[in-house]
């Protein structure tokens, strides 16, 4: 798993809900929808047209309580759209767990909204938690996961599916 990300920033505001990332009337109502199709509705209510502008490797920065609300996995469309890493002043618990399980590095970084403007470039080390603004030269410390913690290990495995296959096999629940 890559641990350093450099990219251009898209900024979002406070309390960006998973309803905005995964609209119920478009996605939940259509269980046959592919992740690629579903991603086209991401942020369509609050920022129409954004999905056409975002480029693979871009970074997303948000305010407090990013991913609040429903347990829908908002990280899936973000990952499909190519977002490489997410930083927010605070992140909802369910969204943070979903991000780990999806293998989309998502860090709680208090102060990040004031630290970077849209379009500036950041360098993020998800192991140390160090964030550098390449346009201003300033640095900011994000909250890194302890390296021996389950979420860090799941993230490093690339997400829950890969982690689980390994763990379930080791636990002897699967015939080799």
């Amino acid at each position: 798993m890559q641990t350093t990300f450099t990219g251009r920033v898209w900024k979002f505001g406070e309390a960006i809900s998973t309803d905005l990332m995964v609209p119920g009337s478009k996605v939940l109502a259509n269980p046959g929808i592919t992740p690629e199709e579903a991603a086209q509705f991401c942020m369509s209510a609050n920022r129409p047209g954004w999905v056409d502008q975002v480029q693979p490797g871009d970074l997303l920065v948000a305010g407090t309580n990013f991913g609040c609300g429903s347990s829908r996995n908002g990280s899936q469309p973000l990952k499909v759209l190519g977002i490489a890493c997410v930083l927010a002043d605070s992140v909802s618990r369910i969204h943070l767990r979903n991000a780990v399980n999806t293998g989309l590095p998502t860090l709680v970084a208090p102060g990040i909204s004031a630290f970077v403007e849209e379009g500036q470039r950041l360098e993020v080390n998800i192991v140390s938690g160090q964030v550098k603004n390449l346009d201003t030269g300033k640095t900011l410390q994000a909250q890194a996961w302890p390296e021996d913690s389950p979420p860090f290990q799941i993230l490093m495995a690339g997400g829950l599916d890969a982690y689980m296959k390994d763990k379930v096999r080791k636990a002897g629940l699967v015939r080799a």
């Binding site: 809900s17 309803d19 905005l20 009337s25 939940l28 109502a29 609050n46 609300g69 429903s70």
Partner: peptide
């Protein structure tokens, strides 16, 4: 409540709801 069926809202409509969240598009 979760915006799936049985009473979705049209453009410019307002709903008073006993449910739990009033996010845009909910």
């Amino acid at each position: 409540c979760p915006g799936g069926h049985l009473g979705l809202l049209a453009d410019q409509e307002r709903c008073i709801s006993s449910s739990n969240r009033n996010f845009q598009g909910r």
